[in-house]
Amino acid sequence: MLADYGLLALFIIVAILFATMLPLVALALRLAGIGAKRKPNPHKDTTYECGVQPVGKAWVQFNFRYYFYALVFVVLDVLTIFLYPWATDVKGLAEFGLAAVAVFVAIVCTAYVYAWRKGLLEWK
């Protein structure tokens, strides 16, 4: 049963290795830190030693307009979910399946056309 998902099992192994690597890397850095000589100076401690001076905090409140794009993406994602079972058996589902999917995609695309016509896909 699991053999059917051999590739997935490979990913799981990679994930496990990845998980064990994280503490190992942390340990290696800690060991290196013990032996290192420390000579702090204000220039060296900046975020980008040879770059632009960072301004303000990294945690800023983002414009809520971005959320619209997130919602649009979620809808596209759900659309994909419905296309996936159809794609597994396109031939078997024949013309009726194609028509059903075409109607479905047309309905969802209406929303995108509406958003486009309202100028919401442009950044103001």
Binding site: L71, I107, V108, L120
Partner: peptide
Amino acid sequence: TFEIAGLMLLAAIVGAI
């Protein structure tokens, strides 16, 4: 039901707009 799910997605985007 499948097509109605499409309508629901349409409503979701229009609501977001």
